[in-house]
């Protein structure tokens, strides 16, 4: 038997109001009463479209579009970043691009999000993972698919995974995701 929730969800919206209660005459008593008035609460919509540049990280997104997972590497020390980074944090040098598409990869940490930010609520439950790659010094935040999100277990840490790429790229970091290898 399916139970209805005990509470109706709280949402915005409703009737448009063109007037609110107010004393007909501003007598001293009425003016004093104004301090006891409940607050007026209104809706203020706010929407904006940004023109965002991936700038020096653009090749990483171009790589995903072409089913390649790139990483950045310091030219001298070889310190390697799984998440794009134009300059090394230790030497300050400009990094080079390398291909890590076929590197051994495993789950370093994970969670199953049963709730989320408003933009992602419709996608819940989803699995976030930090992926570690052989020979790479830092991690990559991504999504894990191909598992049962209701069967989460700490044993998922260490699971071998492999990248998959969207056929129809969205030019977002979610163009790559991971599945059990």
């Amino acid at each position: 038997m399916t139970m209805l929730p005990k509470k109706r969800p709280e949402t915005l919206g409703g009737y448009i109001v063109h007037n609110v209660p107010f004393p007909k005459e501003l007598t001293p008593e009425a003016l004093e009463w104004l301090k006891k008035m409940a607050p007026i609460q209104i809706e203020q919509p706010y929407s904006i479209t940004y023109q965002h540049s991936y700038a020096q990280d653009s090749p990483w997104f171009a790589g995903l579009t072409n089913k390649k997972l790139l990483a950045n590497q310091d030219p001298e020390t070889g310190y390697t970043y799984a998440t794009p980074r134009g300059h090394d944090m230790y030497t300050g040098q400009e990094t080079n691009w390398i291909d890590i598409t076929d590197r051994h990869a495993e789950i370093h940490a994970f969670t199953v999000c049963h709730f989320g930010s408003e933009e992602f609520l419709a996608e819940t439950p989803f699995v976030l993972v930090l992926v570690e790659f052989e020979g790479v010094d830092t991690l990559l935040l991504s999504r894990l698919l191909g598992i049962d999100p209701l069967d989460a277990s700490i044993d998922w840490v260490g699971m071998e995974v492999k990248p998959k790429f969207l056929r129809n790229s969205k030019l977002k970091p979610t163009d790559v995701y991971f599945v059990p290898a």
């Binding site: 794009p84 999000c113 930010s117 992602f120 996608e123 976030l128 935040l141 970091p173 979610t174």
Partner: peptide, 10 residues
């Protein structure tokens, strides 16, 4: 907002 938030920022 380039690499992390769009993955499912929460």
């Amino acid at each position: 907002v380039s690499t992390d938030y769009p993955v499912g920022g929460f």
